[in-house]
Amino acid sequence: MTTIIESEPWLATVALISTIIILVSMGMTVVHLLRGPGLSDRVAALDLTALLLLGAIVLYSLKTGNPMFLDVALVLALLGFLSTIGFARYLEERNKP
């Protein structure tokens, strides 16, 4: 079975570029996550990590040609949001007097 990437060579280039972009962003996000300085920065960074991971999973799915990985991406999309809300609530409460 040939994957879509193999049948469409241009897609490989796109995937490669995307991978590089995601990797670079990921590195920057992790730095952001660790350095802060504020808590809200970190939560935003966490949310971003989840999104980047999502992108990475989609790319991986593309690369392997297995649509099942998209299930993971779907759930991750949902949960990234959930965790952001969860952290945000905490921030909200913390900023209250």
Partner: peptide, 9 residues
């Protein structure tokens, strides 16, 4: 919170 976030990662 940072530790928890790292755990999440």
């Amino acid at each position: 919170v940072v530790a928890a976030a790292c755990l999440g990662v």
